[in-house]
Amino acid sequence: MNTHSIERPSVKEIQWVNPATTLIRIQSVCDLTGLSRVAIYKRIATDPTFPRQVPLSDSKARGAPVGFVLAEVQAWCSARIAKRDQEAQA
């Protein structure tokens, strides 16, 4: 029997796709931002600048699959870097 394991793409592999139309899962958001899953959901609840989830099914149940738009996550990371640089100059 020939079985293939499905592995999640690495951050490097994600960067080769169109970020405006690519949905990534929570673990990739963790990898890109350096935040834990819990910290990400706290940010969603309290930080209006943090990217919002995109439902991947019509289910409204807790734990229903969601994704995040890669470009939005990258833009948030870039904004954090810009804020750091701006504060360093002040």
Rank of each mutant, 00 (worst) to 15 (best):
A88V: 09
V38F: 08
Q53C: 06
R25Y: 13
A90K: 09
P9K: 03
H4P: 12
I14K: 09
Q15R: 14
S57D: 02
S57T: 01
A82N: 12
K83A: 15
P48H: 04
T49M: 13
A82K: 12
V38P: 01
A90S: 13
N18W: 01
V66P: 00
C30N: 04
W16K: 14
C30L: 02
V73G: 05
L70F: 08
P9A: 05
D47K: 02
T3V: 15
A90W: 02
M1R: 04
R43A: 01
T21M: 06
P65W: 10
Q89G: 13
Q89D: 12
A39K: 12
F50M: 01
N2I: 13
S78W: 06
R84L: 12
A82Y: 07
Q74S: 07
K12G: 08
R8W: 14
S59M: 05
D31W: 05
R37V: 07
E72N: 09
Q89S: 15
K83I: 10
P9G: 02
L35D: 01
T33N: 08
S57V: 00
E72H: 07
T49W: 03
Y41P: 08
A61D: 12
Q74T: 04
E72K: 11
R84D: 11
V73H: 02
A82F: 08
I81L: 11
C30Y: 00
L32C: 08
I6A: 10
M1Y: 02
T33Y: 02
Q27C: 09
Y41R: 11
S28V: 13
S59Q: 05
R80T: 03
H4F: 15
C30D: 00
A64M: 00
Q89W: 02
R52L: 11
P19W: 02
Q15K: 13
V17E: 12
I14L: 14
S5D: 13
N18F: 05
S57H: 00
W16V: 15
T21C: 08
K83C: 09
R43Q: 06
S57N: 03
R80A: 08
